[in-house]
Design a binder for these strands. Structure first.
Lengths: 335, 335
DNA sequence: AGCATTTATGGTATCGATGTCATTCGGATC
DNA sequence: GATCCGAATGACATCGATACCATAAATGCT
């Protein structure tokens, strides 16, 4: 309602018998303030319980100390490593993050972006490389560092820190074929033009095609479905789809759900059916058998993205960076 | 660096031939603007790509639209339901949250609070009821709604939405004794004065004492340890501590880790040893056997806290609310 | 001593919006 | 046509800090 705190720079200035600007300099630790003066000002500030008003500071200095982070969702563990590492990394430098959820939808993303931009963040980190035209224009207009993450592109808004979802799925599939699997089915989240699920599916299919194989089936799991209920759906799907020997899941959560439910239904994994995930979240380690998956370096992407934003803001760099952090195929028990 | 967007109210005002204040009113949807004028202004605003500057608005109106949320950690799934439901609930009303992590430490909490207060949030939601003196003073000074969550207290800063950690542990332990367990050991996160781990341990011990039982041992797991490594430590602990028939864990993550590692070591659960958790996160459902635990209504607490903040801000209510959302003992396979 | 620098401080405008109060306008009323 | 009233608009101050430029005091140097 009223976020008014009673003490402002002016009050301190009056109490100390100096001008507000001197107080401002003293408290910000700028040079050119006499040590005595600074000490006295600091003391008065503490005594009065002064808390700087960052809103006023932001308005005048055009620096909010805010970095906007947009991810599809913060629920579930998929993006939490990334968000945490961004937050930790930027926190060290005194930045605060404000998070927006795009809900896997570029129009929603645009709405969220527009809301966040009103707060004039000093930088933007955004998951994905596919945005509406308006979003791209807005990002460009803002004139702040922008880092797209979790994917690669030839045509970034500014900088990019990601990996090739398509390439990872392609290589992973080749490796699975190498291991002897032949009868693949694919389970995926909703696919839209050039989103990650779609790219992964494309990579998978390319590998199949290259080896002269064709898919034994596919199923789409909606976003809001929990691990166990997607697992149920997938159990039904694989028992109904005869002859599948490997279920290729384009995201980790549905792979975990499928593994748990198939095992609870008495299937032997990977003998009756192999299941592989994509992402590697912590939960993949606690199921039996632990999940074979593609490890996405979420924390690393967050860290690098944060570093780029920070370095651009401190003038050490100019943007337009592309970093491919790669991926790691992690063999565990399910394939 | 420069979050400057090129178009301000003034530009629109000039283009439309009206004053800035009229533009402001038009775009905010206030009454007393002629429909024609509004339409024209809206159109110009869109054409010029105007994005309101919330920083300036916040400064003048003393409303930032920001709610500070402080939790021990956002990593892991413990508090994510709560944070998500706060965010969703307040998002509907146009508020944005800024998150701070106290790292389970009240001095750190104070530091985080001081940082967040600089942004002049319109409200504060904070996990826990035990704060430093300075934190409490600051919260009071701010003159905004404050809701403490995840615990109960007789002496809230303002409002509270929680449950009795001690009572839950007490009742749960009684129920376990009723089920036939007698030889308890306790595994806990670090305990500090009146923190949640400590309250849960106290409740547990009270129940034991009341039934004339005494603990067979206790172990503390540091915060930063992952599920599987705490599980290893606990496996060693229970095999070294003879005769324990039920491991009472004061948090969910260590219970899951313990269950997974004990089972992988070939122990039968709950026959060789029962293990119970506290919290109920999604991962508790995917292990075998699924974890018996106390379900904490994290999303409900978040929703209620958000509702209180919102209602206070819209003048429908005056603060000083206490809500006990209770807890639910959830029997599954591990006890 | 005289002058150039550096150090320390202050005055004032400004960031971009909104609160407050004043003013204008159009039409209804008599 | 004069008066009144509410609808529509505007002028101005202000939120709390910082940028920018000016100035005073202290120091260095020849």
């Amino acid at each position: 309602m009223a976020s008014k705190l009673p003490v402002s720079l002016k009050d301190i200035a009056e109490a100390a018998g100096v001008s507000t600007i001197t107080v401002s300099r003293a408290l910000r630790g700028l040079p050119l303030v006499k040590p005595d003066t600074r000490k006295q000002i600091t003391e008065i500030a503490n005594r009065l319980g002064y808390v700087p008003n960052q809103v006023a500071s932001s308005l005048r200095s055009r620096k909010t100390g805010l970095i906007a982070v947009i991810v599809p969702t913060v629920a579930g563990s998929i993006f939490s490593d990334t968000v945490n590492s961004i937050s930790n990394e930027l926190g060290k430098a005194g930045y605060q993050i404000i998070i927006g959820e795009s809900s896997y939808d570029i129009d929603q993303e645009q709405a969220v972006l527009e809301a966040l931009v009103q707060r004039r963040p000093d930088g933007v980190i955004i998951a994905g490389v596919n945005h509406t035209r308006t979003s791209r224009e807005l990002l460009a207009l803002m004139n702040v560092p922008v880092v797209e993450i979790w994917d690669m592109t030839d045509d970034p808004v500014d900088s990019v820190v990601g990996f090739s979802n398509r390439g990872a799925a392609y290589q992973f599939t080749l490796a699975l074929i190498e291991k002897g699997y032949r009868k693949f089915a694919i389970a995926s989240g909703p696919m839209e033009h050039r989103n990650r699920a779609q790219q992964r599916a494309v990579g998978h299919c390319e590998a199949l095609a290259e080896k002269g194989l064709s898919s034994f089936g596919s199923i789409v799991i909606p976003h809001f479905m929990g691990m166990l209920s997607s697992g149920e759906t997938l159990l039904k799907f694989v028992t109904d789809t005869s002859d599948v020997d490997c279920l290729f899941c384009t995201n980790e959560l549905i792979a975990i759900g499928a593994t748990v439910q198939c095992r609870r239904a008495g299937m032997r994994i990977p003998d009756d059916i192999a299941i592989v995930g994509f992402g590697n979240v912590e939960a993949a380690l606690i199921i039996d058998p632990p999940l074979t998956t593609v490890t996405i370096h979420g924390a690393e992407m967050g860290r690098e993205a944060a570093r780029i934003v920070f370095e651009c803001l401190s003038g050490k760099r100019d943007g337009h960076v592309s970093i491919d952090v790669g991926y790691t195929i992690t063999w565990r028990g399910t394939a």
